[in-house]
Design a protein around this nucleic acid. Structure first.
Lengths: 347, 347
DNA sequence: GACGGAAGTGGAAGCGCTCTCACACCACGT
DNA sequence: ACGTGGTGTGAGAGCGCTTCCACTTCCGTC
């Protein structure tokens, strides 16, 4: 970091400013600015003079100065209100990030990751969003108690939710898969193959996706006239799947079908069932949810409900960018993506 | 967070500015600023007046304006020069992000994720870093051709590398595990258990971590007087592990030991070996590298070399923050963490 | 009682950029 | 000859903040 200690010319200190570019190009600061930003109303002569000066000086606009006046930051936040550990091990998150970056890559927009452990730092996240550090926010995975959707709606910050928020769903845009339909179909698959005693491992009761899937299971069970009493809750992690499966099999040893709300939990359940000597799918058929890479690698490979997470994230991001750009500002759009059953060996 | 809709005074348009806070508090803008930033040289009376005004107006400082003058952005970048897809499925990355966020959570610093597909967008990444969008950068995983280390060193931007960079390693700080020692020890373990014909699946030849591990394997082989000819390269993914294992076993069917440069690749190799009917570790012993969750779940569980990724990321981040804060600015620190062998069933 | 120093304060000068506005200039009409 | 409209340009006014500097108190000291 060799500080410039040469006899510095009056105005040039660190990196070159627009002023210097203008001076070198022999135009005014205003013209230089125009030339740099798309070149509307700039003569070819001025344009090339500025281009040259920019290249020569290695000029890069100061983003702070720019956004001070434009009120744009050219960055959006991905807000993840989850305890860090859980998030990163979940392929859902990876897929989401992949989808988002793919879209942002097309434009010169940066991604700011906002990890908000629920509760404690919600205020901090909100503060960050409040002072317009970013132009918009994509909020993935949300819990019942953080009234994030409402708070952000109050902020007036362009925002899209990944998955239906608990409250405020009528005020914000969101992209979701039809979780209820997905789990209903998964359950119907088990019913069709002859399962008569079907249990479920649901997700955390404070997440809409989990509740919706549970509702789907209930619907299918009710329609088939089967008892919907074998329910355990996990938290979408592998370990919680093990625990839930153990509890479930203890209470209902006669289960011949198991509907699990995530592949990771199903993975844990499969292990427990294998330990117990249950053959899959002959003794007990299992379906998961997600199909984000885990399902194809379990033993046996998992029949599951595919969530096109990448695609959801992409569409959500595009939606967000539209709103940031002011196209069709604020009315709450909903994008519900139909789920797909992927059949493998486990059911 | 109800919008203030009272008859707003002349100057208040969008969100409140420092000016308004000062006016409401009955002090000058300068005093208000001081009160808000730690309150040096501010009387208790003024301080509380400002605090009150801030609360009353719901004032949040404009970060752009602030960083325009302070030349600080209170955010750091995590630069990942990898094709997106590979990164997100790798637990190495998850661990890194976890470590970083843990440290950043202690202070009010944000994380900006810079995904730079190598080649194409390196220039863009560099541009982003050049104009001081962030106060510092943590660069993880780098390839031979992107002379990122040198470029960033030229920039004079505070920076820490995760893993030894190919070039410029003498000019930047980095945190690394002793890959050579790790793989050497892993190989020695196989030798000690009696393996006489040991192959290796190395990582991509353009990554230092991969090359260092390969060197470790070579060292151990040479020391034991064993031939170091059974080498295949993968790209750290599961699939590439399968391919490499297949090629390796075809060329050298007599292998009784396999040293794999990542657990993910080892996972693929295990599958291939199982398909071929090889018993592990009796027919062929296998060691992996990473121990980031995958190794405990393979069949059989994988003996591997642990990289404490979280810890590395944490320490790297702290190191980075120190440099950002100007403590001990620029001389190239190196933090080499010793590896640990974790013994499980595969060797 | 004069005096040095610290503490608290406000005026004002920017930070580097965008963008409005007024102006000059050119080519067309009429 | 005179408008009329478009196009390119530069002066200058901010955007909201920090911070230097000069100033006023007010204290303890000799």
């Amino acid at each position: 970091m060799a500080r410039v200690n040469s006899p510095r010319s009056p105005l040039s200190s660190g990196s070159p400013t627009l002023d210097e570019v203008a001076r070198v190009a022999g135009v005014s600061r205003a013209t230089a600015s125009r030339a740099i930003n798309g070149g509307q109303r700039v003569s070819a002569r001025a344009q090339s003079a500025v281009d040259l000066a920019v290249a020569q000086l290695g000029y890069v606009p100061n983003p702070a100065a720019r956004s001070l006046v434009t009120r744009r930051t050219d960055s959006i936040a991905v807000v993840v209100p989850e305890p860090d550990d859980r998030v990163f091990s979940d392929p859902f998150f990876a897929g989401t990030l992949r989808g988002v970056t793919r879209v942002l890559g097309e434009r010169d927009i940066q991604l700011v990751l906002l990890l908000a452990r629920p509760g404690a730092s919600t205020a901090r996240t909100l503060r960050y969003l409040t002072n317009r550090h970013v132009d918009g926010a994509y909020v993935v995975s949300h819990h019942r108690d953080d009234r994030l959707a409402e708070h952000i709606a109050d902020l007036g910050l362009p925002c899209v939710f990944g998955g239906r928020p608990w409250t405020g769903g009528d005020r914000v845009a969101y992209v979701d898969v039809d979780n209820t339909a997905g789990e209903r179909e998964a359950t119907e698959l088990l019913i069709a193959r002859g399962c008569a005693r079907i249990g479920t491992i649901a997700g955390p009761a404070d997440m809409t996706a989990a509740e919706d899937r549970l509702a789907g299971w209930r619907q299918a069970m009710a329609a088939a006239g089967l008892p919907a009493d074998a329910v355990e809750h996990g938290d979408f992690t592998e370990l919680s799947g093990e625990v839930a499966a153990r509890a479930l099999m203890e209470r209902h040893p006669d289960l011949d079908g198991l509907v699990v709300a995530s592949d990771l939990m199903a993975l844990g359940a499969l292990r427990v069932l294998a330990e117990m000597g249950r053959r899959i799918p002959d003794d007990i058929a299992v379906v998961g949810y997600d199909d984000l890479g885990v399902a194809e690698r379990t033993t046996p490979p998992l029949t599951t409900v595919r969530q096109p997470v990448d695609e959801m994230a992409e569409r959500a991001t595009r939606l967000l960018l539209e709103r940031v750009d002011g196209v069709d500002g604020s009315h709450p759009v909903r994008l519900i993506i139909p789920p797909t059953i992927v059949r493998r060996a486990s059911a």
